[in-house]
């Protein structure tokens, strides 16, 4: 009898804990959206999918001009070729994805039930290659970025709908880890992501305006004029981490995947519009 009571109490407490943290994720998101709404009352929610150009009216004109001849078009075309390439076994990447082509982008990041960790679109592509006896693609290399550019392009207009399943402690842990990463100061400069993209959002670092984190993941991969090429979301994370003089984590590391999970959840309801073009 005692054991039974203990078990019930344990299960109850655990459920309550999940409930609190899960309520936490949605509460976090609502607070996040409200924060930016208070900071920029005139910016409609949907605009945040445009990243910095949602709040930087000076740079917006130039961006729209660039978008007339999109510099990422080549990556999208290349990506389509890779997507349709036939493996030796006669299959293609498409055979690994049960979704409609335009649903693939917004199906990630997600918590993989079998692995118990966050799987991103890039990782899913490599999982598919492994399943088809193909060598893994290097994260940050052209081929995988081009494929994600193609899938982002196909998925344009679909809303982010990242799920943190309330009955999965691993999902909650991944979400919490991403959230903790986002709010922790790091590096010699002692700065958290939130220090710049929440507290100082819209302000200038020298000539650069700080973007809102709401919508940070919607438009990747992006073509960066400064670098003359496409970069992935994780490559951008690494750039930020480096800027605060901390050692960047590896592309597709657990840390960056969890951060992507948290940030994507914050952006739920925004339409994906990648690939993007940035300075």
């Amino acid at each position: 009898m005692r054991k039974a009571i203990a078990a019930v109490v344990l299960i109850g407490t655990t459920l309550l804990m999940y409930q609190t943290v899960f309520a936490g994720a949605e509460e976090d998101r609502l607070a996040f959206v409200k924060y930016y709404k208070t900071r920029f009352p005139d910016i409609p929610f949907a605009e945040y999918a445009n990243g910095i150009y949602a709040i930087d009216s000076d740079a917006r004109g130039q961006w729209l001009e660039i978008e007339e001849f999109p510099p990422y078009e080549f990556a999208v075309e290349q990506g389509q070729e890779w997507w349709e390439a036939v493996f030796e076994n006669g299959k293609t990447l498409a055979d690994c994805f049960p979704q409609q082509l335009d649903e693939i982008r917004v199906s990630y990041p997600r918590l993989d039930e079998r692995l118990g960790e966050v799987v991103t679109l890039e990782m899913a592509i490599n999982q598919c290659r492994t399943a088809n006896d193909q060598p893994q693609l290097t994260y940050g290399g052209d081929e995988i970025i081009d494929i994600t550019a193609f899938l982002a392009y196909q998925g344009r207009g679909k809303e982010l709908e990242v799920r943190v399943p309330e009955n999965d402690s691993r999902a909650l842990a991944a979400y919490e880890s991403g959230k903790r990463f986002y709010y922790s100061k790091r590096g010699q400069l002692n700065l958290a992501c939130a220090d710049c993209h929440v507290t100082s959002v819209g302000q200038l670092v020298r000539a650069d305006r700080l973007s809102a984190s709401l919508g940070h993941t919607t438009h990747f991969p992006v073509y960066r004029s400064k670098l003359g090429g496409m970069i992935s979301l994780h490559k951008r994370f690494a750039g930020c981490v480096r800027d605060v003089r901390a050692k960047p984590f590896a592309l597709q590391s657990t840390e960056f995947r969890n951060l992507e999970y948290f940030l994507s959840y914050m952006g739920n309801g925004l339409k994906v519009n990648g690939p993007g073009a940035r300075k």
Binding site: R186, G187, Q188, A246, K247
Partner: peptide
């Protein structure tokens, strides 16, 4: 997860 950029 806290290593600085130049330590290595």
């Amino acid at each position: 997860g806290a290593e600085w950029l130049q330590t290595e």
